[in-house]
Design a protein around this nucleic acid. Structure first.
Lengths: 240, 240
DNA sequence: CGGAAACTTTGATCTGGATCAAATCGCGAT
DNA sequence: ATCGCGATTTGATCCAGATCAAAGTTTCCG
């Protein structure tokens, strides 16, 4: 990965970490203050534009990262170009695959994002020295596993309409500037990306979105901005 | 879970563990000999017939298990009965969801199996006391996560024929009594279970199996027994 | 053995979502 | 503003896989 040196903030001290989105996240929340200081000294904050790759499928990466801001999609692509998004990660998640050098998937910023990059070697050492960190990363892995299996049910057994409703529900519950009953949010994914997450085509996604709009389950403003007047209604559509 | 006391073997000593399939598995391979002895004292070997449940979806379980023999399927079922298999586990895998009491999926023996059951409390304590064990379970979780994501690609983007070929490849590479070139194995799943793993119907699975048979990629004896004359050929069908 | 239930295959038809093909929208650049 | 291009929607048609239906197979039990 190419790290933009010019974008280093004052990471040499705790100052940069103190106000950090990921300070109490999976990685940094499990470190002692001296470890945090050491990790901070070797970290680089980096801006990542929507669409640019953080880790390439099949490549070896010597970096891990924390997501500070934005949404990162995890993709698998087949030699013939077919493609499947296999996970979304939100701040302050950790991105990387401990214990294995080569990535079997790519990680790409879905929205303009900011990540905090640090060397694999350093974190690997900290993991082996810090049971609390191991435990914390184990816990994130298990949560991702639960999410992946839930999505397998969606991919294998839900209809197109249920799939789209499931996606909206997923985003709504993770990107959540919500009031008591109604919820509004910006989709971090284009229609094409939604299709790749749901195992559908763009056209089917679009049709199901308008179906949901016409039946009053959602309101759509500007393609990306969605309002869910009644979350229970949306949940009923998923029949989970 | 209801543990059949009558089927306890001589688990009070290392004797029972010494010849155990799972002795060097994820859990027991990471324990000190005194821990192994303690776990052994509180373990019960249990036979589980094909089709019977080990953990129920939505239930709290106070047990974990190791698979000694057989294949266990992890299922999710929807209120209306639609069902998806989200993972297969083979001996000597560990079965259970650390850190969370209630299971979001069911675990069921796919074949006649034997498992080694031990109390959640005890293992949870050992996990927190034994970084090596934490690491080992973390590692299994990450492998399951990789497998789940690989399967998401299969569910979302592969054709019915590719799906069936993927399943055969999965079984072949895990159940492996294989010679240099050709591989033979018994399917641990019925056609209905294969359908639930692949997000297809029984009929489509059956048709694709006969297609693969007619094209010479596989030979089928007795429904359950499959021979793959040329594994590379099978891999080519998956286009992965 | 025989007979029935369960599982699997095969056939006929239907349909949800894919594919092909235009519009239409929105947004950045001129 | 207006142009132009990519993203999205909408429409028409097609087809892979579902559904409906029936005929083998296998197993298991009396």
């Amino acid at each position: 990965m190419d790290v933009a040196r010019g974008e280093v903030l004052d990471a040499g001290t705790l100052v940069a970490c103190r106000s950090c989105q990921a300070r109490h996240g999976v990685v940094c929340g499990a470190l002692s203050s001296s470890q945090l200081r050491e990790l901070g000294r070797h970290s680089l904050r980096r801006k990542v534009d929507a669409g640019s790759e953080i880790i390439a499928q099949g490549a070896e990466s010597s970096f891990y990262s924390n997501i500070m801001r934005g949404v990162v999609k995890l993709c698998k692509v087949m030699p013939d170009g077919r493609q499947q998004i296999v996970g979304l990660q939100f701040a302050p998640d950790f991105v990387g695959r401990p214990f294995v050098r080569e990535s079997t998937l790519s990680a790409e910023a879905a929205t303009d994002s900011e990540i905090c990059v640090f060397p694999r070697n350093l974190l690997d050492r900290m993991i082996s020295e810090t049971p609390e960190l191991q435990r914390s990363l184990h816990d994130q892995a298990l949560k991702e596993l639960d999410a992946a299996r839930e999505w397998m049910l969606t991919l294998g057994r839900r209809t197109a309409e249920e799939k789209v409703a499931s996606l909206l529900h997923l985003i709504a519950t993770h990107a959540e500037p919500q009031t008591a009953t109604s919820t509004a949010f910006d989709l971090p994914l284009s229609r094409a990306e939604i299709a790749d997450f749901l195992g559908l085509t763009i056209e089917t996604v679009s049709r199901q979105m308008t179906r949901l709009r016409k039946s009053g389950v959602i309101r759509i403003e500007n393609f990306r901005h969605i309002i869910v007047p009644d979350m229970d209604e949306l949940e009923r559509m998923i029949s989970a």
